[in-house]
Nucleic acid binder design. Structure first.
Lengths: 149, 149
DNA sequence: ACTAACTGTAACAAAAAATGTTACAATTAA
DNA sequence: TTAATTGTAACATTTTTTGTTACAGTTAGT
């Protein structure tokens, strides 16, 4: 029963703008090296609420991609060079489930297929996730930013 | 304005159990060749509502993967052999957006980055989608079903 | 010390998306 | 004619995402 509750809580998915938002933020930071950017300014470029930006920046900070400075002249700055940031790091920071989506929670254990389906789906989902991560790892933030010039 | 509304309407994503459900259905059909399965029975294996199953089957029928029979001894049957069904067909049938998620709707057109971000994100998203489709194309329903034996 | 301009986060509100449900017309075998 | 089924619309509910308000904590400049 506890297991069930836990699997409900952690079965989430990537059905959102978080990757787009995170990469937008990082692109802005990479493109304005030397300056610390504020959440208000970043939010103006993405056209979302500044609090949403600060929350996402919190995630990027935890992932070691961004640093922040508090106080009057506070703001955000890349923690590593854009050359050393690969897009799989961004994806891993924001993702909360697999690319093929969710599994059904309680397939029938008395059915030969239902009994094992989530194991086999799990393998498939995991394979596809690895594939995506591997590809994203070949792409750097520097590469991405260069496309804008 | 109309464009905006349309882009909202069609900016959906794969944050659901539809791929899992569709593949579960197809696995059952492939595994019981010779019999027509009813939506109630299928729903019992997945443990979801029969109407949800019928809706998803409607999608698989449109995709040319399943056929149906109405009336008293109605039910569902594969339209093609499991050997000739590849998993990209399943994914294409159920998917409604790209694997990396959604883009933000209205990035600032007065910002050099915001102005072009969706074009570049679009290219990236599309690349990753192609990668996933290509991999899924190498896997058949027959292969998948074989894992259960 | 005081103020102004920030970050960090909690708590809540609103909107959007996914899933479940009821109901019933249409179909078909017996 | 009946019983069992598909197909689908309409609506309800739940879950997830996104937005918002509020404010404590921090820091530079006066």
């Amino acid at each position: 029963m506890l297991q069930l509750v836990l699997s409900i809580r952690f079965t989430r998915i990537m059905n959102n703008t978080r990757f787009a938002t995170a990469l937008h933020i990082l692109t802005l930071l990479a493109d304005s090296e030397g300056e610390w950017l504020g959440s208000e300014w970043i939010a103006g470029s993405i056209n979302v609420n500044p609090v949403v930006v600060r929350k996402e920046l919190g995630v990027l900070i935890k992932a070691g991609l961004v640093q922040s400075r508090k106080g009057k002249v506070g703001g955000y700055y890349l923690q590593k060079s854009s050359k050393s940031i690969t897009l799989d790091e961004v994806y891993l920071a924001v993702k909360n489930t697999e690319v093929l989506g969710k599994k059904n929670l309680l397939p029938n254990p008395n059915c030969p297929i239902g009994k094992d389906i989530n194991v086999h789906l799990g393998n498939l989902f995991s394979d596809l996730d690895q594939l995506v991560l591997h590809e994203l790892r070949t792409r750097t933030l520097e590469n991405f930013v260069a496309e804008f010039h």
